[in-house]
Structures are given as C-alpha cells and as structure tokens.
Amino acid sequence: MKPFAFARPGSVAEAVRQVAAEPGAVFLGGGTNLVDHLKLGVATPELVVDVRRLTSREISDLPDGGLRLGAATTNSEVAADRRVRERYPVLAQALLAGATGQLRNLATTGGNPLQRTRCVYFQDVTTACNKREPGSGCSAVNGYTRYHAVLGVPSAMPDPTAPETCIATHPSDMAVALAALDAVVHVLGPAGERTIPFGELHRLPGDDPSRDTVLGHGELVTAIDLPPLPDGARSAYRKVRDRASYAFALVSVAAVVAGDSTSERTVRIALGGVAHKPWRAARAEELLRGTPLTEHAVGHAMGVELTTAQPQPGIDGGNGFKIPLATRTVVATLRDLTRET
C-alpha cells in the first residue's frame, strides 16, 4: 500500500479545506470501500481526511414531515430507525439487502452512495479500465458482464479501446431507494453549501467514466434529506441476486406507489444493477400514472422503458437476461405493493 498522511481535523469546514487544498486527498467515512481500494491499489491518495466523527450522527425530523440523515449515521442505524421502518420501508429494506451486519455497522449515509463499482476489472489494477485509469480502455466489454449495465450504454459491445467506454454499474442498494424517494443531498464544498436532488448526484459515463458523481474535489456530503411521502403511500425494495444473502444485485427495484384511487395513482420506480447510476424509470412511471397496475400494463410500460437497453455479450452468456428480469422484478414489486391495499 502506498504511504499516505492521515488527518482528523476539528471541523467539517476544516476537512473540506484540507481536501480541497490537496489534489491527492480523499475523505474517509466508514472506510469499507476505500480501505479495500487502498489495499488493491485502486485508490492511491497522498492524504486521507477522516470525517466519520465530524458530520452529524443524528436522524432528525424535518418540519415538513421528512427526515434528515446525518452523513455519519451508519447503515445499521438508519435501517433500524423506527421512523425509517414505518415511513420509508423501501430505504430500510434496501439497506438490509446490502452487505452484512459487520459492514452496515461501519458504512455511513454519506459514504454508501459514493461507493464505487464492483466491476472486476475496475478492481484489478492489471487490466485496462477507463474508470480507474482514464484512456486505458474497458476490459469489461465482451468479458465478464454479468454484473454490468444494459441501460445508459450506447450499444451492445461498445468499442473497448475508446476512452469513453464504461459498462460498469453502481453497486449501492441504498442509492436505488434514495433515488425513488427523491432524496436531497446536502453538500459542503470549497465554494460553500449546495443541495443536489439525489437523481442528479450520480452520472452516466458520458465522456469521463472516471467520475461517478457530479461532486467536485473537496465537496463533502453532510446530510441526506428524505422528503415526506404522500399520505397512504407504500414503498418496497426487491433485490434479485446470485445468492440469498451478501451479494450485489443483478437487478433491484425500489418502488413507491401513492394515490387513493386509480385515477390519482402515481408510481415511482428506480432500478439498480442495470446502469452506471440508479435508474429512474421515468417513461414507465409516466405510462403508469393513473392506470390500474395490472401485470400487462406494467409489462408494457417497462417494455417501453427498456427499448434503449443494450444487452452486453460476454463470458457465461453475457447480461441480456437483465432485460426480462428487470420487467419481472418491477411487476412483482408493484404487485406486492398493491396487493396489500
């Protein structure tokens, strides 16, 4: 492991100043992803700035009926919070579907959405990877693509030598739920505070796959707000994976259904495991607004949503299975949510 300096400043503002002043500096939260990357050589910082004891570890009620999650709250604490379990089951379920008890006790609200892809090539410094080493190419194309993207990629089998090619997925379950909840991210940076709608935090690879989010260097997540859901809204998270526990998603779905009558019904759908970012299925949501959520209607809406999907060939048959799997998982999630009414 490359040597690094370590700092634990006395305030959040000082932490931001320290990271902003050093191009090779990183923030350390729970460390569950960063410490692994230090060992793997994926992350090679000059300075590690520990913020775990600086940001808030409180979950507080907001005046509008929402909740504010301090960035240092652990994934375990958020999943166990009574208010989260009762009012935002989709978030508690997503957190509990991710990692293990030992990891959730370390991982934080601020850090979880910023964890990096588990693409095996990204984590292997002997292979070409545009995310880890911009311009080096993408080893995942036509490789081991089982956990890779089908949405937000330009084609099936994009050019592996092109500097913009990246078919990695975002691995966080929590982030998929936060996308469906229209959460709001509070950020402190060198230029002051700003808020980012959660759906705009993560980005598609675009022309720079090395950037997972829109955060600039030195910008620190200080809290995430959960807006109140409409009265009577129901929400759930469903995750499909290769093992029953402790595995990343092949496909996951976070859904919120609101509205007393069919004509007033609104549906929010976010997909995990299919794209470089949590994927809000906006076209499907629009098609399902005010309609009965029959299997046929949901299947049709998801068919429209997935028209741009690009199945990736690769070892073990590639990942084309994700396209029907995404539809079926949405159908099952919405069926469960509407059955209880």
């Binding site: 410490v35 590690v48 370390l106």
Partner: peptide, 10 residues
Amino acid sequence: ALSCLALAVA
C-alpha cells in the same frame, strides 16, 4: 465490525 477494513489510526 470487520477489523480488516478499519484503519487503526481512524
């Protein structure tokens, strides 16, 4: 917690 993913200094 996992002691392999925790830096002692942190």
